[in-house]
Design a protein around this nucleic acid. Structure first.
Lengths: 140, 140
DNA sequence: GTATCTGCAAAAGATTTGCAGCAAG
DNA sequence: CTTGCTGCAAATCTTTTGCAGATAC
């Protein structure tokens, strides 16, 4: 995580190291506020604004990916190569992990055809979970 | 679009028909405010709150997909089977369309393994467009 | 006629920003 | 030292909500 900051040309501060550490520990995308709360719970002293600023610059530099298709919040995850995708119930919000990412090949092709340097992607499936289907909250 | 409302068990009002019409016309995802502005430009009388409410219920019922990985806004598109995905420059915001969606097969598998009824997915690629690469605004 | 829908204005959230002080290289 | 980073509080911006009147069926 030291190296991530270096490769992003960012100064190596306590807050940033902590944010990166927390991002490494988590296995699903987290919101800025969740990161802030966890950092606080560990006794760290930092402000929510800084968490946002840190996530923002890391996203710009490609070290972090963001997603916000669920509720109103934005969720962040490290842009490593073990990233995961999710299937979200649009009724109750339950989340299931998807263990496949068929996109790496497509990314290469895209890079060739568009000239973009592709830094990541965001993929999320929407649906209705079995329980919500039973409870008939959805309109098929 | 008449039929969409019917199949969603929604009343067939002017505003909803207009929102669906505008969604059908556009070829890229649009924000609630863009829809509102376009409707207003056409002389329609409606409120932004209603646009949000309409999009919200259509999303719940699976007729519309939403995405919000770009700026702070949420973008909506019809959940038809000709849907498109996009490649977004994280520096300047330029958008390119991706003419492939390798996900339909994966969706079927997911539905089987999770029991979810899958209503859609949201996929977006992030990268740096050729111009921004040249201008060196990115930190590789 | 009744349940649903809409407009308006106000509220609620999430995220951003200005500025003054602090810290890393 | 100098540039970049942070905290705080205020501002901004998008989205949601309560309520009273209007509309679809």
């Amino acid at each position: 995580m030291h190296d991530i900051l270096k490769s992003c040309e960012l100064k190596n501060t306590k807050t940033r190291k902590l944010v990166l550490e927390l991002l490494e520990q988590t296995h699903i995308p987290v919101s800025a506020e969740e990161l802030y709360d966890r950092a606080r719970a560990m006794g760290a002293s930092l402000s929510l604004a800084t968490v946002y600023r840190t996530l923002s610059v890391l996203t710009e530099r490609g070290a972090v990916l963001k997603q916000s298709n669920r509720d109103g919040k934005t969720y962040y995850q490290l842009n490593d190569h073990h990233h995961k995708h999710f299937l979200v119930c649009t009724v109750c919000g339950e989340i299931v992990q998807v263990d496949a990412c068929p996109l790496c090949k497509l990314e290469e092709e895209l890079a060739k055809s568009t000239g973009y340097r592709i830094t990541g992607h965001s993929l999320e499936f929407m649906g209705t979970c079995p329980r919500c289907q039973k409870e008939g909250k959805e309109k098929p």
